[in-house]
């Protein structure tokens, strides 16, 4: 009970802070819209996947990818706020409190996931504009998957952030970890037809399965489905759940080890 309370406290703080930062909310909405409307529409005219079924548009392909992307970036940003907390001293206040370190890591991971999920759900509201119809049940399933992805990524971010001493390292992490994770996930372009080394990398990227899970739920059973989906839903879910468990474990250990 005390543990839950501690997790809840850390979570609540993140959520309150999020709603207080108007610019962050704006940025969070603006970036995916930019990608979706400008990139999506811009590329749609030139981007043709060979053998695509009639009625296919690039925007159908990129839509789940953009949702995955925004969840990825939001989750990482939330996790990296640990570095801010350290710089501003608030982390010390939490670390000296009579609560186990893992509650801080889990609370933080849940806080980041909540914010990332909110962003994901806002993007789901755009589905009718894209020409994708989603039933209430589908939306619930999608939110479930988004939660797992967000939780995994925030935990990954926490693992990194607990080792980072300053914000300067953040750009390096972005360039050498987050962007590759994103580009290789199949969010922007499909896996097939790329050279084999790249395909291997894409298969190793856990986010690939997250994006695929979204496509699975959105398009399975439609003419587009067979074409866009790469793995069975079971495989996708297994990989992202394993990823979530692995990363939250790593995050907790990294947090515990801090002196």
């Amino acid at each position: 009970m005390t543990y839950l309370r501690a997790v809840y406290t850390i979570w609540l703080r993140d959520v309150i802070r999020f709603f207080r930062e108007k610019t962050r909310i704006l940025g969070m909405l603006g970036q995916p819209l930019l990608y979706l409307l400008i990139m999506g529409n811009g590329l749609a005219s030139t981007f043709k996947i060979p053998g695509a079924p009639p009625g296919f548009s690039y925007i159908h392909f990129i839509y789940p990818g953009i949702i995955g992307m925004s969840v990825l970036f939001t989750a990482i940003h939330s996790a990296i706020s640990i570095v801010w907390d350290r710089e501003f001293g608030f982390l010390k206040e939490v670390l000296v409190a009579p609560v186990p370190r893992w509650t801080v890591a889990v609370g933080k991971a849940l806080g980041g996931s909540t914010v990332a999920m909110l962003q994901g759900s806002i993007l789901l509201l755009l589905a009718p504009l894209i020409g994708v119809s989603l039933s209430a049940l589908t939306v619930l399933k999608l939110l479930g998957v988004l939660l797992v992805i967000a939780f995994a990524i925030t935990s990954l971010g926490i693992t990194i952030a607990s080792r980072m001493e300053s914000m300067e390292g953040f750009q390096v992490i972005m360039n050498f970890l987050i962007m590759p994770l994103f580009f290789l996930s199949g969010a922007m372009f499909p896996l097939r037809g790329v050279s084999s080394w790249m395909e291997t990398l894409m298969r190793l990227d856990p986010l690939t399965y997250g994006v695929d899970a979204l496509r699975n739920i959105m398009y399975r059973g439609t003419p587009l489905g067979d074409y866009l989906v790469q793995f069975p839903l079971g495989t996708d879910l297994l990989v992202i759940s394993a990823m979530a468990l692995l990363f939250v474990g790593a995050g907790t250990i990294a947090f515990n080890r801090r002196e």
Partner: peptide, 26 residues
Amino acid sequence: MVFQDPSLDERLTARENLYFHAMLYN
């Protein structure tokens, strides 16, 4: 504990800072 360097959450109100502290200390 009162640390050498400030350790408040600047984006929270005074009340919220105290509230979170109370939550963590049960």
